[in-house]
């Protein structure tokens, strides 16, 4: 397809959906007054209901169903796939790595975001300073992975060969021997996690900074007059005031981290014991052709998200009740 044809097809697709909206509105326009409300609601919701039903609910149910079948999806396998996830040594490594990601990323990203938000709060160059931390959020996981691949790049320690990765350059400057950061187990996981922290800290900073600014001035003023120092201020005023926002940030980053796939795939391809559930799902489903295990991993991902979401909702309820 030529470029022009591609854009033409794009234009037609957009027109089609604008037409759908127009038809829905025309139909709905015929029912006036309150009696027509049911018909109007039906017309407005039908396209969404169709899309979500066919595109989300049905596929999800089907995946759950096939997680109880074998690799080809032909014979019933009971809980075999789930058993494999929790007993097979490769799969256990995947689980261990996923736990590492989900425990480390949210706390470090939130910690750094919070620290930075406090440091630049009301500073002269607050806006520009924030934009710098913020920017990685606009970069794709793939792009970020390439950026960090350059940082982690390795050259053997021989004669006149110079390091081209920044980390090894700094490392050799302080007397270390060059390291293959992405190969050395289990530390390589940590170097992948750093990429995610680099991206998510900006999100944490943005939300927390808004929360900090919402703390009423008279509270901070009163504390200051009482002689509360910066650390006391942080502990007794800032953190309690922004606790609900902290919970939201931690849980949101936690969920995003659970689903991370692009970073692992781009940087190591899941080799050297760095695979995580989301990456393993893709490899099993589309590369290893093991539908059953892939489906079970996808379901596991779903199940792991649930407790985080429930915790989040409970905390929100609690903070609203106060």
């Amino acid at each position: 397809m030529s470029t022009a044809e591609k854009f033409l097809q794009m234009g037609l697709a957009i027109l089609l959906f604008v037409a759908v909206v127009a038809v829905v509105l025309l139909v709905a326009g015929r029912f006036k007054g309150r009696n027509g409300d049911r018909a109007v609601a039906l017309a407005f919701l039908l396209p969404t209901a169709l899309a979500l039903g066919v595109g989300l609910v049905y596929p999800a149910l089907r995946t759950i169903y096939f997680s109880f079948f074998d690799a080809q999806g032909q014979s019933f396998a009971g809980f075999d796939n789930y058993q494999q996830i929790f007993t097979d040594s490769d799969q256990l490594t995947v689980l261990r790595n996923t736990v590492l990601w989900v425990v480390i990323t949210p706390f470090l990203a939130t910690g750094i975001g919070l620290l930075y938000a406090i440091l630049v709060d009301r500073a002269k160059f607050e806006k520009a300073a924030k934009a710098l931390i913020f920017l990685p959020m606009a970069i794709s996981f793939v792009g970020a992975s390439i950026i960090w691949k350059f940082v982690y790049e390795y050259r053997p320690d021989q004669g006149s060969i110079k390091q081209i990765g920044l980390l090894n350059q700094l490392w050799t400057m302080v007397g270390g021997t060059p390291q293959q950061w992405l190969l050395n187990e289990p530390w390589n996981n940590l170097f992948l996690i750093i990429v995610m922290i680099w991206i998510q800290a900006g999100f944490a900073m943005t939300i927390l900074s808004a929360a900090i600014k919402a703390i009423p001035d008279d509270i901070t003023e009163a504390a200051r007059l009482d002689g509360v120092g910066p650390i006391g201020m942080f502990r007794y005023i800032t953190v309690p005031s922004i606790r609900p926002a902290l919970v939201v940030v931690l849980t949101t980053i936690g969920i995003a981290t659970l689903k991370v796939f692009d970073i692992v795939r781009t940087m190591t391809g899941g080799q050297f014991n760095t695979s995580v559930v989301a990456n393993e799902f893709y490899s099993q489903t589309f590369s290893a052709d093991n539908q059953g295990l892939g489906a079970a991993l996808a379901v596991l991902l779903f199940v792991l998200v649930l407790p985080i979401v429930f915790y989040n909702i409970r905390q929100l309820r609690a903070s609203e009740g106060r």
Partner: peptide, 28 residues
């Protein structure tokens, strides 16, 4: 728009946010 079951339906749509897209890919 007022209609019966509105709140329930809205909660269902809201809840669908947490479905990871991985769950849908192969069937899709």
């Amino acid at each position: 728009v007022e209609f019966k079951g509105r709140n329930l339906l809205f909660v269902v749509v809201f809840a669908l946010q947490i479905v990871p897209i991985q769950v849908t890919l192969l069937p899709l």
